[in-house]
Design a protein around this nucleic acid. Structure first.
Length: 225
DNA sequence: CGGTCGATACACT
DNA sequence: GTGTATCGACCGT
């Protein structure tokens, strides 16, 4: 039975008012719940830190899309990407610093039927939310939710049933973030080691433009079979 | 289980 | 015009 909203225990807003790399490991193993019975246990997150991080959407200043990143922490920042996917973040960091935590993967612990219906292509329950867009899809988070307070209304964060054993905390480079040096190589991805619902790691690849048909391709370079 | 590739629309230059 | 904090279908092992 899903825990009724009257018994939700949201984390205090001060929990999020810190550097995202400090919040990230503590967000693992916590539950993101909705008032329709869906709930996901967070198993993987990534930190995107304000104006010091070229990979963060907030790096080049505020735009209409990223406005909520510059607002109050504890709110949802949801963006649309690749023409078909949504990814959900929780805004964090001190006031005035636009940072966020990308929710990269989770385990569906309540509302399994509804979650399966949202992703009929999923081959197993462990893959239902094993990726940022998968997690957003399963929990029904879209840009319509962006800007909403994640600590109120139809959402809530519960305290974990069990604390994360330190030996299960893992970290490494962020996924899908291309580029060398600087924050791109920082271990700002955090996950629960050995958890089957963590997303499969795919290193970021720098995009190579496909040569036009009939035009001379690039000369024989490294990596060409 | 793992690699490759196309889809698709929006934000931003 | 260009690039994207990705996914799933397909194919091979």
């Amino acid at each position: 039975m899903p825990l009724p909203p009257s018994r939700w225990r949201t984390l205090p807003r001060s929990f999020y008012r810190r550097h995202p790399t400090e919040v990230a490991p503590e967000l693992l193993n916590k539950l993101l719940v909705r008032d329709d019975g869906r709930a996901g246990r967070i198993v993987e997150v990534e930190a995107y830190a304000g104006d010091q991080d070229p990979a963060a959407h907030s790096f080049r200043g505020m735009t209409p899309r990223t406005a909520t990143m510059f607002g109050e922490c504890g709110h949802l920042y949801v963006y649309f990407t690749y023409g078909m996917h949504y990814c959900a973040n929780i805004v964090c960091g001190p006031d005035g610093v636009a940072s966020a935590l990308l929710l990269r993967a989770g385990e569906v612990v309540e509302g399994l039927e509804l979650a399966r219906a949202r992703r009929p292509a999923s081959r197993s329950d462990t893959d239902l939310a094993s990726g940022p867009a998968r997690l957003a899809t399963v929990l029904g988070l879209t840009t319509a939710d962006s800007g909403n307070d994640a600590l109120a209304g139809p959402y809530g964060l519960l305290l974990p049933a069990t604390p994360v054993p330190p030996e299960l905390l893992a970290s490494g480079p962020r996924v899908g973030v291309a580029g060398d040096g600087g924050t791109h190589q920082y271990p700002w991805r955090f996950w629960l080691a050995g958890d089957p619902t963590v997303s499969k790691y795919k290193p970021a690849v720098r995009k190579v433009r496909k040569p036009a048909r009939g035009s001379p391709g690039p000369g024989p370079e490294e990596g060409n079979p």
